[in-house]
Design a protein around this nucleic acid. Structure first.
Lengths: 141, 141
DNA sequence: CTTGCCTCTCTAGTAACTAGAGCTTTTATA
DNA sequence: TATAAAAGCTCTAGTTACTAGAGAGGCAAG
């Protein structure tokens, strides 16, 4: 049994974040010391590690909640977990696509500006006038 | 002079968003009709188009505020605008790098899972146990 | 028993909107 | 001109995943 500070450094998750996870019920309510402080055990650390790891991969809290629920019974079919991961992967691919379009457009705009003053700055002109854009950059996340 | 609905469809920005932009002072306070409704003119549309365009490129409101301020005087040097755009470009590059790492890791995890039940689902195992990760995916945005 | 660190709850703030309630104004039609 | 539909108004609260800070209380070492 250890306190929240120790759990925090073991899992590499900040203290307020741990309390937040408890509040939104992805961590169970912690046991308390006689004075009311949270006390944790190994299983809490494991669950928190799972959460942090999933967060590092960019999964949202609701997906993580589903994954935790699924993982609680080893007999569950794993297609649901696979689907969550696969959907997340496709969201990431979409984001990459979108960001690449932005990157391309910004590169074009930035490299194109050779002027001295705002009056004929290509950056400003591009923003003011969509017609100067080479490409589309309106969709997606 | 037209109403907020028309401005909204001309600029392709939702009505509440326009009011929000006014509230945070990146759009000037609109003139009002005798009954108190907002009335806009061409210059408002141009400013709003500028904003939307910058948002489409992923720029944050504070950057846009700076760009708008700079663009108000054509004599201003344009290095400041260029710097804002260049910094944004580098943030985008970083995000792409980060997302590509996640993509790689998720692909590995998803394709690796051939099981039927959660008990030996590679997705779940990877999340529970960081040692199964091929790569790092902890840094950055 | 005291000192100092750890932890507690609660509120509010972040970014950039979005949704909805309940009401008033404007516009189009009869 | 009367009325009804469409458009607009303000205000509050919700979204995501935390983070910061105030002010009070718990805990372990010496």
């Amino acid at each position: 049994m250890y306190g929240i500070g120790r759990l925090s450094s073991l899992a590499n998750v900040k203290i307020p974040t741990i309390r937040y996870y408890e509040e939104i019920n992805i961590l169970p309510e912690a046991e308390r010391s006689s004075g009311g402080q949270r006390r944790y055990r190994q299983s809490d650390l494991e669950r928190l590690n799972f959460i942090r790891h999933a967060r590092d991969l960019g999964l949202g809290i609701e997906d993580i909640r589903d994954l935790l629920r699924l993982s609680e019974n080893g007999e569950n079919p794993c297609v649901d977990a696979d689907r969550i991961a696969a959907q997340h992967l496709s969201r990431i691919k979409d984001k990459i696509k979108h960001l690449r379009r932005l990157e391309k457009e910004l590169k074009r705009i930035v490299s194109h500006c050779q002027s001295e003053t705002i009056g004929d700055c290509y950056v400003i002109q591009s923003l003011a006038n969509h017609a100067l854009c080479g490409d589309e950059h309106k969709e997606g996340l």
